[in-house]
Design a protein around this nucleic acid. Structure first.
Lengths: 204, 204
DNA sequence: ATTAAAACATACTAAAAGGTATGTCAATAC
DNA sequence: GTATTGACATACCTTTTAGTATGTTTTAAT
């Protein structure tokens, strides 16, 4: 058996993701990727069937990472407290930490990047992108529903509302970040949402 | 004097904006635009020097529209009440109305679309995009500062924080909207921010 | 009516993009 | 050591895309 090429494939995906964050997927040409990775066409088409395959592989890898992060957040939050509301607040806190310490979320969100050129992707990639959101909605939505069985919000809102608001707060931070440059805006946005939830349920 | 071509130019800009919302600017080829507008290359390059010029003209037109909308919001809010906090809440209400009645904001946000492929644009376009955000920040920020001279927030936050949170709430709604399809999510996100401000200052 | 000039259409060009064909090298099993 | 196979590099091809060159139509002032 010959040598291992998985490192090269990961390198291509890394370089692609960085470029996608900067200029979107369509403008991320293979030449740009290969220049950044210091590789050639031969290397690329050995690991990927096409540019579409690259888009698919990238979002698939991203989905795995996000799922792991989400699981980690839930697990850590459940170790802190048994109260579902406090668990959500803790999860937001962990997210803020991740962003402020230069974690993966401080670099951007591939779901958001893809969302702004959805029509360019095939049905499979679109489905995968949406699945990312769905996963977060299910997990966070569950926590909010349990929280609302226990506590009454001061203003009538649904668990689904809160869940979408949380995702929107994060993604909105990403947009401002892309425009302004400082990832701290992302955590600021999450802090605001945490404040909102705190006030809404009179927590803390 | 020959006939008037401004309608054609506007048509090209309209078609471009729709396509940019769907697939981003880079993937919006001139052929796609001209097919949608039922025009030809000749028409395009008569009105625009280049595709870069198209990007510039599009964001310039968008900036003018946004500035008018913002002025309208402020004027209407100032007619409703003299209280700066209530003015902000009123402005958010008007925004929600605009979105729910199929206004321009329910179609997308060009600042956000551009933000995800910033590296593809020249310095001029980047500056114009940022100016859009800056304008909103100045106007809304001013209202929040005056509101905080009068009222104490229950949780310590700055006027700039709130301003950025408001913009992030809107843009976050846009991201989810792009992914899911229903523009109502945008207004839901704005409602959540309005709730936040209400709770924060004990308004209503 | 003539004409000038803007408002387009048509046909083409050049370069950039994705993709292919083919070859070389390196690691491992035998 | 040799053969085999994956991991790349190089050179080329093809299509797409922005852009150009040139021609035709339309409008309105004279």
């Amino acid at each position: 058996m010959p040598k291992d090429g998985t490192a090269t494939k990961e390198l291509i995906l890394d370089c692609t993701q960085e470029l996608v964050y900067e200029r979107g997927f369509s403008a991320t040409t293979l030449d740009l990727v290969l220049e950044k990775a210091k590789l050639t066409k031969g290397a690329f088409f050995h690991h990927f069937k096409s540019k579409d395959d690259l888009a698919t592989s990238l979002i698939e890898r991203y989905l795995i990472g996000e799922a792991m992060l989400l699981n980690s957040l839930v697990e850590r939050a459940e170790q802190v407290t048994r109260d579902p509301l406090q668990q959500v607040l803790a999860m937001i806190g962990f997210l803020i930490d991740d962003i402020d310490t230069g974690g993966p979320l401080s670099k951007g969100c591939l779901f958001a990047s893809y969302a702004f050129e959805l029509a360019e992707f095939d049905e499979n990639v679109r489905a995968l992108s949406k699945r990312g959101f769905t996963k977060w909605r299910e997990v966070i939505g569950d926590k909010f529903e349990k929280a609302m069985e226990k506590y009454q919000p001061k203003i009538p809102v649904s668990a689904m509302d809160l869940t979408e608001n949380m995702l929107a707060s994060f993604e909105g931070g990403i947009v401002i970040f892309r425009m302004e440059g400082s990832p701290h805006i992302i955590s600021h946005s999450m802090i605001a949402f945490r404040n909102y939830v705190s006030l809404l349920f009179d927590a803390d």
